[in-house]
Structure formats: structure tokens, C-alpha cells
Amino acid sequence: MALEIRDLHVAVEGKEILKGVNLVVERGATNALMGPNGSGKSTLSYTLMGHPKYEITRGKILLDGASLIEMTPDQRARHGLFLAMQYPVAVSGVTLYSFLHAATSAVRGYGERTPTATRGRLNSHLMPMREFRQELNEKMAFMEMDPAFLQRYLNEGFSGGEKKRAEILQMALLKPKIAILDETDSGLDIDALRLVSEGINTLQKDLNMGLLVITHYQRILNYIHPDVVHVFVDGRIVKTGDAKLVDVLEEQGYEWVRQGMG
């Protein structure tokens, strides 16, 4: 039960960015991925989620043995993959509430919206409102988010930290098997970082979730303890170790790894 990435090569607009990534994220395990700006970490996370801009030229991505490459992003999400984005996108006119209701319903299999479904019973593709509302209220309270956010448009005008909190709120509702957190710590203040990290830890325990935590800084890893740390340089993993690797990186930077490579 794991996310497996085998010899993954990815190009964007003809330029190769990922150059043979090998990585396994087991259910219940926490993997940290650290690497310099522009090394391809977000490219990896977008590719895993199925962003159409990223062209896979070689390699495999498997989730619990099933190949993800042929799947659309929404199918991947429904299979239990979640990506907390480095830059969450704002969608004007779509309230956070209606979005969460639609997404939660879709991932929990309330049925696709079809002409017959809508004809037969309005909103039959949605989770019953009362049940959803109750769960949502609990999760919002847990994330210490003001319910007023629900009537705001998705991510529109949210502060950097509010966006990141909303990403984890979504994760809590969608209950993935594997979650990729792409710089979820950036933009969070000290208290929010602790809150969000504790939220992630609780969810991980409840769901036996596998985590791939992409970060530049040690501080989030003080709360979310990684089982494995990978160093990512120029489109591939160049070093893998335990949590102690983080300390070495904090002290010496990536130059140390690059020299080791050279």
C-alpha cells in the first residue's frame, strides 16, 4: 500500500525537468523532500496529480499498484491522492462552501452529476447537506477557521496563511491515502504552523496517510517528524537519509550535496 514513483522523466514545453525520480511513499510514513529553488519539486507534485502541462516521457507512477498515469486528475483524487498546492488557485464566484460540498461529495462517491441525475432529484450527486454541514463545522473548528470563510469565494483574497489552512481543511474532508504537501509551511505564522502541523499529524494517524512533505525549512519538520528525508537536486533525488540529514542541510546548505555529487 504505497505511492511508487519509478524512473520518472518529465518535460515541460520540451525541456526536461525531472530526470529519473525514484521514490516510494508508504501508507502511514512521512517522507520529507528538500531541494533548492527550481530543482523540480513542484513539477513532481503537479505531475503526480496529473497536471496536463507536464509531459511524462518515461517512468511509472503507481498508487496501491494501480497506474495513475492514465488517470485524469479527478480520478487520481478519487483514488486517494491529494496535493496541497504551493500556490492555491483562486476561483471567483465559487464559494468555499459550495466547492467543499461538491468536492467532498465527488470524492466520497455520491455519484456523478448527469442529466438524468439532476432531472430525477435535484442535487442528488451531493452529500446530504445536514450531514456535510456537521462534519464541516467540526473540521473548521479543528482548523480554527472562521465559518465566515465559507461564504467567501474560493481562495480569493485569502492571505497566504489562510490559503494554506484552507488546503489542509480540504485534505481533512477528502481523507486521502497519500498527501503531497508542497510548501504548506510557507506563509504560516508560528502559531498557525503548529496548528496546521498538529492537524496533519492527527489526520495521518486517523487515516494511516502517507505523506510527502516538500519544504525548505526545518521548522515544519520539528512538528511533523519525517521517517525519511530526500534531497532533490536538478530533477532527481540525490541523497536519502533519516531526520538527521535535515540538520546537516540547515548547517551546510545544498552546496554540500552538490559537491558530494561532483
Binding site: P73, D74, L83, P88, G93, S98, A102, A106, R113, Y153
Partner: peptide
């Protein structure tokens, strides 16, 4: 925007419909 919604489990037509409705909301 569409990718963001799809990544959260919404099939493409549903993602489009949500965004379009947001446009006139």
C-alpha cells in the same frame, strides 16, 4: 482554475460548470 478543482475530485464537466456559474454569481 479547472485543474485545481479537478485535483479535488471534480470531473472536468463539473469543474467547468462550477467555474462558469461562479462567473455570473
Amino acid at each position: 482554475e479547472r485543474f485545481y478543482l479537478e485535483a479535488r475530485g471534480l470531473p472536468k464537466p463539473e469543474a467547468q460548470s462550477l467555474i462558469a456559474q461562479g462567473f455570473i454569481r
